[in-house]
Structure formats: structure tokens, C-alpha cells
């Protein structure tokens, strides 16, 4: 099948901006965000998975991070970062899951010298923490909650 791409953002306004560019380049896409009805979401996913002309799916990180099977896509682009890396991983797993036969590429687009550098560092810390003590409840909780120290780090630096 054709190479298809899922594009994630946590802001629907960012998806709006992206739609404008896709229209300019005449690239066919579907969209999935929390404001849509269940029927509209189903239709968007089905058309993305089956229509060869539709090569891009614009998804909000929150609406599209669990359950959906979108192995028609083998390319994932994240337009912005989420401080908890597991949320991003769940989003990427829409394409990288059982049934996928092609290698999946993931691109994270970040802007240098902004708070995003620190979000990347924070993600790395969370990954290390989960990896070092997998299965322990207290660590599990601290890995999924943004602490005061985390916030201080994000906005003020170390």
C-alpha cells in the first residue's frame, strides 16, 4: 500500500494550521480530534486505512492515543512534545503494533533553545526512572505525575 503518515499535535489549532498547508499542496487527509462524534471518528479512521488517496491523518494527542489500529501508516510525525514520554509512545503505537509489516519511522519536530529542550531532558529522566524500577507502584506514580520539581525545571531550568 501507499506510504501513509499520522501527524500528532496536542493543540487542535495547530492541526487547523496544518490543514491549511495540506490543502495548498493538494494532499488528501482525514482528521481525528475530541470534538468529533464517534461516527465521524470511525469514518475518518476507516477512510484513512482503506482509501489509497488519503495519505495523512491529523490527530490530536489526547483523542488518538489509545486503542486505534492504524497500521496503514508507517510514518509518525509529532509536532510538539508531551512531558510524559509514555503518552507519546502510546500515540506512536497506533502505527507500530501487531499487523504492521513495514518499518515505522518517528519524527519529533522541536525548536532548539526553547522549553522543548528541557521537555526532552525530562522525558529522558522519566524513561530512566521507569526502566530502572519497572513494576514498583511508587515509581509508577511519580513517572505519571508532573512534580513541582519537574515544573521548576521546565520553566526555570536546573
Amino acid at each position: 500500500g501507499p506510504i501513509k503518515t499520522i501527524i500528532f499535535s496536542q493543540w487542535t489549532r495547530m492541526l487547523d494550521l496544518f490543514e491549511y498547508s495540506l490543502n495548498q499542496y493538494c494532499i488528501q487527509y482525514r482528521r481525528l480530534d475530541g470534538s468529533m462524534s464517534l461516527a465521524a471518528r470511525d469514518r475518518a479512521v476507516r477512510e484513512f486505512n482503506t482509501d489509497p488517496e488519503v495519505t495523512v491523518m491529523l490527530m490530536s494527542l489526547k483523542a488518538g492515543n489509545l486503542g486505534l489500529n492504524m497500521v496503514a501508516a508507517c510514518h509518525v510525525i509529532l509536532l510538539d512534545l508531551w512531558w510524559n514520554p509514555t503518552t507519546e509512545d502510546q500515540a506512536i503505537d497506533r502505527a507500530h503494533r501487531i499487523g504492521q509489516t513495514r518499518p515505522v519511522t518517528v519524527s519529533r519536530i522541536t525548536i532548539k533553545d526553547t522549553v522543548e529542550d528541557r521537555i526532552l531532558a525530562l522525558q529522558e529522566e522519566k524513561r530512566k526512572m521507569v526502566a530502572s524500577a519497572f513494576g514498583e507502584d511508587r515509581v509508577g506514580v511519580s513517572a505519571t505525575r508532573l512534580t513541582a520539581d519537574d515544573l521548576r525545571y521546565l520553566f526555570l531550568g536546573s
Binding site: P2, L79, S107
Partner: peptide, 18 residues
């Protein structure tokens, strides 16, 4: 925005190789 430009470049490069 620079992010949209970067994402479109990735998208279009895949489209060409396709």
C-alpha cells in the same frame, strides 16, 4: 510556522520517494 514547514518537508520527501 517552522514546525509545519519541517513536517511538510518530511511528508513531501516521502511522497516523492513513493
Amino acid at each position: 510556522s517552522s514546525k509545519i514547514k519541517a513536517a511538510l518537508e518530511i511528508l513531501l520527501s516521502h511522497r516523492e520517494s513513493n
